[in-house]
Design a binder for these strands. Structure first.
Lengths: 213, 213
DNA sequence: GTCTATACACTGATAGAC
DNA sequence: GTCTATCAGTGTATAGAC
């Protein structure tokens, strides 16, 4: 009655779980210190295991880092992918900003890992930016240009519009320490994200509403 | 007739020049890889000298890094300091955005060094953010609030307004590689900063113009 | 699967010849 | 002032006992 169907592959459930623990710990470390500034020792300690043990699951530092990066770009662009050409323009943009800001709130480490990669010039990553990312942005830019031509959105450079949405939302993850230092005890709590959401809504919607002349 | 007034101190002109060369090289390296990810060897090579020779001028890695950071925060906040309470509100804000964007264009490495520090949680730097930086921002926030009360600027959260100016302008230095990848060959040249300036002018000025009801 | 031990390259920093 | 040589410590990665 027993079968050996459970282990047809060298990847078992427990292995996957351990790998997840390691990736989780690695995200903590890489997002703070970048690839070169992080050590396997740090990651192993954060994961609660010895260094050789960690290296049993991932055979090199690079092998831990790469899947984290791959996973992130995909997650990161999900909100942009969902921007609906058939939706109401301003609410679509507003919703995109909201979702992007929520990602900064809920996945700050992922944002910082990405930022670290950009800062060092995105080695072995530039190709993806230049193809997949560019293609997606180009597609959405066309949609936004359409909305502008219809007079539903104020005319502005759609590329820089997207950059400014990325910049303003990711700032709350990447520069979190600065944001909190400046806002101080009273205003720097969790409410800062709601304040930010309100402000960005106003800035972009007011800034993008077609002028009535 | 010759005097020894030229060398009353152990710090000579030539020493200063060498130190400048080293700091210049260190800025290159630190801005890419952060403090921990950078090595003295890398810096020495970039500065065209041997590692022991470099360590003759700065006795530790930290001693090279610290003055760079100190210099930067000061330079960085200069445009904000110059925002004039007695000036015309919208042009003052516009001028601030311009100057900040020019700094991203002219001093991208400084911006990236700062970003690297923020990403790792600004150790031994948080105090300055929490005092000097916060004080300056608080002061300017009061000015902006005054403008809003007078109806010269649309009402919005002044802290998040400042954050969004920092974020959008610094993005062009910190995420330069991504900006260029997305804009591609035709639009990614030096003109990208003028396009950005036009866009940001429009976004912020349109977004902050007081509504006429 | 997990650990100890270890190989071996790199890094920060110093000593001492020139 | 600048170099070669060097040291102690850390870092990545592997070997092999359990």
């Amino acid at each position: 009655m027993t079968t050996d169907a459970e282990a047809p592959r060298p990847i078992t459930r427990i292995q996957r779980e351990k790998q997840e623990v390691i990736l989780e710990a690695a995200l903590d470390v890489f997002s703070q210190f970048g690839f070169r500034g992080s050590t396997i020792d740090q990651i192993a300690e954060a994961a609660g295991m010895s260094k050789p043990n960690l290296l049993y699951y991932f055979k090199s530092k690079e092998d831990i880092h790469a899947p984290l990066l791959a996973r992130i770009l995909d997650t990161w662009l999900e909100p942009l992918r969902e921007m609906d050409p058939d939706g109401d323009p301003l609410p679509e943009i507003q919703s995109y900003i909201r979702r992007k800001l929520e990602m900064s709130r809920d996945f700050p480490r992922e944002s910082r890992l990405f930022a670290n990669e950009m800062l060092r010039g995105a080695p072995g990553f530039y190709d993806i930016l230049h193809t997949d990312l560019k293609d997606l942005v180009d597609e959405k830019v066309k949609i936004i240009k359409g909305w502008m031509a219809e007079g539903k959105v104020a005319k502005a450079d759609p590329y820089h519009l997207i950059f400014s949405i990325w910049a303003t939302t990711q700032h709350y993850a990447d520069f979190d320490i600065q944001v909190k230092a400046v806002l101080g005890r009273e205003r720097g709590g969790e409410g800062r994200f709601e304040d930010a959401a309100r402000f960005l809504d106003q800035l972009f919607l007011h800034g993008l509403s077609p002028k009535k002349r």
